[in-house]
């Protein structure tokens, strides 16, 4: 019983599956049994993750039904709308597949425009963030500010009309300092993820299992 309540089993599973993935990536061509087992486990992962959506569905439903029952002020009608649209889409998708005309209509004429609207709201947030944050306080912020302005004018057709040098400088910024910085961050991120992966496989990184203190 104590073995089941402890963290040894999940750490053990993590180690075995993690090693299997690593061995498959490098030696899969030489070990067809490992390759086929890994593919099987990966398929299981996709199926388990799909079932996890049901947990999410239950979680959302509980929270919003709770709001409905309590008639939470300023909230209950949004909860009703959320539940209604969610279950309608689920029903249409399940019983009619995604090619169902009703599903397609809701997707193309409700979901797609609303989704695009949310993405478009970034324009407002970017403008207020740029206005507030781009202050030339020191050398680094001056560099950030000036390269940001040059890249903006490189991307906008009007930039070239103002000065033909903007696309040239912008292209240089994208191809040289940007590539250098991206590569440096990528290398550091990879090192960090290898270290984190090793800690996870060895059972040292237990934060995701809950801290033991």
């Amino acid at each position: 019983m104590s073995l089941l309540k402890g963290k040894q089993i999940p750490i053990g599973i993590t180690l075995v599956v993690g090693l299997m993935m690593i061995v498959n990536y490098y030696f899969g061509a030489a070990l067809p049994a490992v390759k086929s087992t890994t593919t099987l486990v990966q398929n299981w992962t996709v199926i388990v993750a799909a079932f996890a959506l049901i947990i999410g569905l239950i979680n959302i439903s509980r929270i919003h039904i709770n709001h409905l029952l309590k008639r939470s002020k300023g909230q209950w009608f949004f909860s009703l709308w959320c539940l209604a649209i969610m279950y309608i889409m689920i029903a249409l998708g399940l019983f009619g597949t995604t090619k169902n005309p009703g599903y397609q209509w809701l997707y193309n004429y409700v979901f797609l425009p609303v989704d695009a609207t949310m993405y478009s709201s970034l324009a407002f947030f970017i403008s207020s963030a740029a206005y507030r944050a781009f202050r030339a306080r020191n050398v680094e912020s001056i560099l950030l500010l000036s390269s940001g302005v040059v890249i903006m004018l490189m991307n906008a057709p009007i930039g070239e009309i103002i000065w033909t040098g903007f696309p040239v400088i912008g292209d240089w910024i994208m191809s040289v300092p940007n590539v250098a910085a991206q590569r440096a961050i990528m290398i550091c991120v990879v090192m960090g993820s290898v270290s984190l992966g090793l800690r996870t496989l060895l059972g040292m990184e237990r934060g995701y299992l809950g801290r033991e203190e």
């Binding site: 961050i185 550091c188 991120v189 090192m191 960090g192 800690r199 934060g207």
Partner: peptide, 13 residues
């Protein structure tokens, strides 16, 4: 930034 996030778990422990 980047790997500082990965180090967070170890750092906090």
């Amino acid at each position: 930034l980047g790997d500082e996030l990965y180090a967070a778990g170890a750092y906090l422990s």
